[in-house]
């Protein structure tokens, strides 16, 4: 166990798996490594041996080796043995496959969360309507199903948190899903399909917390978002704005933000919904609750900064 973690930490195996599907992919990795190692040896050993044993040692170029043109039995052997190895790899894959594509057992609780990839952030929607950006909270030891897509007006992304399993593309007009069942912890990931200038900044994180803690948090969060006193505005600012306008809104790919440019809520909403110039329509499908959260947060943040700065 200790050595597994060490290997995973050095990158010689996939990152430490903490969900049954990811664990089974790791098992698969080891079987494939064994087969690949065997084949590599069967190539490398004779190659090195022959290179050493049959090197010219000053013999003239005119000296020929024995004129052997082939051997049918050998051809059969190195056709059939690899087929056998591939069949073993396939059999193991099929044996592990049901555990990799997690399905809910009868009566088991399943939480379905919608994941949307957008330039350049992830938007999550919980069953009760609560919204989260980039950072997802999920209950421990519960089957969590992610339904992954992207708005029709956006581009392709790929949602990937390696500790919790494989990646699936977020494609406009298509829907994919994957599930995980994780232990308490924080898992990092990022977009894996090139999606534009700030693709590298499109990070994702899943924080897995105990079930009862999660349930009460989710209820409170939904109420707070409804009432307009949640942290959603800040999350939206960090997820949808800072990647191009800089961590403090000081300007990066896009221009800097100031109290003057963000004070007119209607103007901000218009730009966020429709985009402008090279800025994508980051909030095209946001509802009023989301838009209000952002505009009021921006007004507050930059007004305060204006005061402290002045």
């Amino acid at each position: 166990m200790g050595s597994t973690i060490l290997l995973a930490a050095s990158g010689l195996t996939p990152v430490t798996a903490d969900s049954p599907n990811a664990e089974r992919i790791e098992d698969l990795y080891w079987v494939l490594c064994a087969i690949a190692g065997l084949v590599l040896l069967s190539v490398a050993v004779p190659l090195v041996l022959f290179v050493f044993r049959y090197r010219s040692r000053g013999r003239d170029r005119t000296i020929e080796g024995p004129q052997i043109h082939g051997a049918t039995r050998l051809e059969l052997a190195w056709t059939l043995v690899p087929i056998g190895l591939l069949v073993i790899a396939l059999a193991f894959t099929f044996y592990k496959l049901p555990g990799i594509t997690l399905e809910a057992q009868a009566g088991e609780r399943e939480l379905e969360i919608r994941v949307e990839g957008r330039q350049f952030y992830w938007q999550y929607e919980y069953p009760n309507g609560a919204i989260a950006i980039d950072k997802l909270r999920a209950p421990a030891n519960t089957l969590v199903k992610l339904v992954i897509t992207a708005p029709d007006s956006d581009v392709q992304h790929s949602y990937w948190v390696p500790g919790l399993g494989g990646k699936f593309d977020a494609i406009p007009g298509e829907t994919n899903d994957t599930s995980f069942k994780a232990k308490v912890g924080v898992y990092k990931g990022q977009c894996a399909e090139f999606c534009g200038t700030q693709h590298a900044a499109m990070l994702a994180e899943i924080e897995v917390i105990p079930v009862d803690e999660f349930d009460s948090w989710l209820e409170q969060e939904a109420e707070a978002q409804e009432a307009g006193d949640s942290d959603l505005g800040e999350e939206e600012f960090l997820g949808a704005c800072t990647k191009c306008h800089g961590p403090q809104g000081e300007g990066l790919v896009g221009p800097g933000l100031s109290s003057a440019s963000v004070s007119d809520a209607e103007n901000v909403a218009q730009i966020v919904r429709n985009g402008r110039g090279r800025m994508p329509a980051v909030g095209e499908e946001w509802d009023d609750r989301q838009m209000d959260a952002l505009t009021s947060y921006l007004r507050k943040r930059f007004a305060e900064e204006g005061q402290s700065g002045g």
């Binding site: 190659l47 290179v51 049959y54 080796g65 052997i68 051997a71 050998l74 190195w78």
Partner: peptide
């Protein structure tokens, strides 16, 4: 794989000039 093993077999008992 067939190609790779045939190449290796070609070097067997040859007069390998590097």
């Amino acid at each position: 794989g067939v190609k790779i093993f045939n190449w290796i077999a070609t070097t067997w008992r040859g007069n390998l000039i590097f």
